[in-house]
Design a protein around this nucleic acid. Structure first.
Lengths: 233, 233
DNA sequence: CGACCGATTGAAGGTCGTCAAACTACGTGG
DNA sequence: CCACGTAGTTTGACGACCTTCAATCGGTCG
């Protein structure tokens, strides 16, 4: 039994070590001894567009490392309207509030096919007490949440509708490794920027007519970032 | 020398133990053994209105537990405008990003006389590795930052100008232990809600004329919370 | 082909920002 | 003690921007 457990840990370590984005994930710099502390399985999962990982209020037993894809965190208001309060991309932790034994605070819906590693909370608690490496990783993740929130408030919730849209496009472009980037539905853009669907649509249409933005397939676009920047500076 | 250090730890423990808001602060449930790990002094400081604790970019060697008072976290935009991205009140950590070895991310200015305990970062790092109690406290603080940010986005950066002002007033009232609460300058209200000073002023004036809000002395007010709530439903 | 969903466009009206002026509170100095 | 200056608040007028409501367009799926 003991041997089996250690063996599992070893398997886990092997898998995590060979992780393609090792340097980005929560377990980035754990060593063999750290992995030995893992007793529950870490599962790799794929969620497709429009699927969700959890909804607000759900009991939070797992935190998810996002290996690839794009996820929106949504708050619903009493009157049914929705507000997107954050976007998560490669390397982010989905459901990080689970670390505080809180139920999930958002509806986490996939915008672009998400590959995640599902990590049981109990593992984090035990390992972080023994590994300064995981402790530092946790601080870094939380710190990024705070910085992302600041950005959301400062750049995406202030200024004119056009400035918000432009900041959002620049942000989405920065998340992408390719030239083209994810272009949200106009409704989602509205929910991110606290503007209406129509206003978002009008601004996108204008940017297209000015040749600054090119809409490709479904939810993909190309932009002249230099021109975009000149619009908000 | 060794004895002196231990003695200092003991002194520190004594002081923290007798802290009037012990249950609220970062070191809430540390025990004697935990305090023995503290080698650098924790200093109690008072900052008066308009003074600041640090500015964005400063090297962050300390985190501050806010014992009483009110602090605004400000981001300055390129064109000199400012956006207030959070308010901190009793029990909050000021400069929490220091835990991630980041320079301070905001200009932290006092709105209402602030009593703080200044804690060297090095202490947190060493203690959190040995004390699950501090670890849990840290998770709770970070988690609150995320929840506060969500609130800021959902309630204070969405909807009509009046709805934002009302949400702000209800929030400020909830922070106060008395009936009267802190009423920010119209300029600060604007910077919190992404509206202009004039719009903030007009809405406050209207609420006063409707008898829902009474302005007392400097930056103090009373409100009929029931009426306020009915305005935003 | 028809139904449906999202995006786009138009027209009208309201909210909010801008610019400017008047007012108030408060502290300083005569 | 009062006059005055300053900084913040209030108020007004006007215009721009954004929302609202509605209609149309375009693509996709049954």
């Amino acid at each position: 039994m003991k041997i089996e457990v250690i063996d599992e840990a070893w398997q886990q370590a092997r898998r995590c070590e060979s992780c393609g984005i090792r340097e980005l994930v929560l377990f980035a710099d754990l060593n063999k001894a750290d992995f030995d502390l893992i007793h529950h399985p870490i599962t790799e999962l794929e969620f497709k567009t429009n699927e969700y990982l959890f909804k607000a209020g759900d009991q939070a037993d797992y935190v998810y490392t996002l290996r690839s894809g794009l996820i929106k965190l949504v708050k619903f208001t009493d009157d049914g309207r929705q507000r997107i309060v954050r976007l998560l991309s490669q390397g982010d932790l989905v459901g990080i509030e689970a670390l505080d034994n809180q139920p999930y605070a958002h509806y986490a819906e996939v915008l672009d096919t998400a590959l995640v590693c599902r990590i049981p909370i109990v593992e984090i608690e035990s390992i972080s007490q023994r590994s300064p490496r995981l402790y530092r990783q946790l601080m870094a993740r939380w710190s990024k949440v705070a910085m992302d929130a600041d950005f959301w408030i400062e750049e995406l919730s202030s200024g004119s509708a056009q400035a918000r849209v432009v900041h959002l496009l620049l942000y989405l472009a920065s998340l992408s490794k390719k030239d083209e980037f994810y272009l949200p539905s106009r409704e989602d853009m509205g929910a991110m920027l606290a503007i209406t669907t129509e206003t978002a649509s009008r601004i996108i249409a204008r940017l297209r007519s000015e040749g600054i933005l090119r809409v490709l397939g479904t939810n993909q676009a190309l932009a002249d970032e230099r021109s975009l920047r000149s619009l908000v500076q």
